[in-house]
Amino acid sequence: MAQQRRAPTPPITGKYCEDHMPDYKDVEHLKKFLSAHGQIVSRKRSGYCTQCQKALKLAIKRARHMALLPFVG
């Protein structure tokens, strides 16, 4: 019996990204994309496209520098 292939993840449209563009000042929004240990979640979990995931990474790192978000925990 042939192994069933997992259905491909539907592509996230640009609309989602436009409505939820990450910004380092919006701490409550950024907190949703951190794990319990303070790690940045993967693209699969965040739902962002490639460019916006990079923007998310940058925003979180800026917020961490300003002590708005923790590095760990």
Binding site: K25, R64, M66, A67, L68, L69, P70, F71
Partner: peptide
């Protein structure tokens, strides 16, 4: 004045600080 809040980690011996934008 952007906000006054508790910092995520101590900075120069301070737990809280005021952000100016």
């Amino acid at each position: 004045r952007f906000d006054e809040k508790k910092l995520a980690y101590p900075v120069k011996g301070r737990n809280r600080g005021t952000f100016v934008m």
